[in-house]
Simulated assay, not measured.
Amino acid sequence: MPTQPDHEHNGLYDFAATASPPEDPGCVIPTLPSRLLERAAEIAAQINPVNAPLTQGATAEGGLPQVAELAVLSSKYWGFQRRTLSVSFMETTGADLKQRILSHMNAWGIGVNFALTNGTGQVRISRTGQGYWSYLGTDVLLIPQSRPTMNLQGFTMNTSEAEYKRVVRHETGHTLGFPHEHLRRALINRLDVAKTIAYFRDTFGWSEQQTRSNVLTPLDERSIMATPQADQDSIMCYQLPGQITTDGQPIRGGSDINAIDFAFARSIYPRGGPIFAQAADWDEAEDVSVESALAQAYATAG
């Protein structure tokens, strides 16, 4: 059973988080309060000069396509430079569980490496909070060290490998700066607004405002970098039922990082090490260009 959204208003940051069984909409990305957005932009620009403030367009009055594009918010992007982000856990966690979670975080196989620290990490994981969520990209640097930047409710060594792939890799994508793909304008234009509002109200108890904010408000295309074609199987894509789309076709959503995800991540971040080579068997040659890799990935995905 999915949990209800949890709202926290403590004067520092606000978020809604929802747990993620296969039939629910997935996580809801925590957002910084408006008073911290300017500081967030300053920090992002210091880390990577190409970063620009995040904006969102007006709510679309239409429906959502059955496909999604992987996109990265340029205002949260860590930049094309190899770096290591330290990781710590908020609760006492066994070494085997730490290593298992870390291995899935590093499954993106790019030049942003996640490494355990005995101190307080830049990425801080809790397993007791409600739902699955992560702050976006460089925003993790603004969260107080006493607070988590990622939540993996209830994850243990008994959690299935499929859930590790679906959830941990998805939330790590947010930490890398990837938003939900259903927020691309083309996707939102395929949703039946009234049906979508009713579905999230009846299934998850969301208000109309929550649904419009989390599902029906598109990202400003000027604030993101994205693949040129859509991919409904991306790990960053919500799974949405056909009952809320205008054409009756569901959004399948991704259960693991796919070839297009890998290719796009590699196009904006430096190449990774052996993890990437093992995962991306569609691009084994070191001299294959990113453009060719993306074209090959699209062809494979159909």
Rank of each mutant, 00 (worst) to 15 (best):
A186K: 08
N158F: 04
M157N: 15
P148V: 02
Q122V: 06
L219P: 01
T159M: 05
N214I: 04
L219A: 08
T217N: 09
G121L: 02
Y238C: 11
H170E: 14
N151I: 03
T175Y: 00
H182V: 12
A230W: 00
L216V: 08
D139A: 07
I125M: 07
V167C: 06
P228M: 14
T149R: 05
P179K: 03
T211M: 11
M236Q: 11
Y164L: 12
T196S: 15
V123H: 07
E163C: 04
D233Q: 06
T217E: 10
D202I: 03
A226L: 07
G173P: 02
Y132A: 13
I125R: 08
E161F: 01
F200V: 07
I197F: 11
Q243P: 01
N158V: 06
C237F: 01
T138C: 05
T211E: 13
Q130E: 06
T217D: 10
A230T: 07
I143S: 06
N214E: 11
S160N: 03
K165Y: 04
Y135F: 06
L219F: 07
D202S: 15
Q122R: 05
N151E: 13
L187E: 11
T211A: 15
K165T: 10
E181T: 11
S160F: 03
G173S: 05
D139L: 00
N151M: 09
G129P: 00
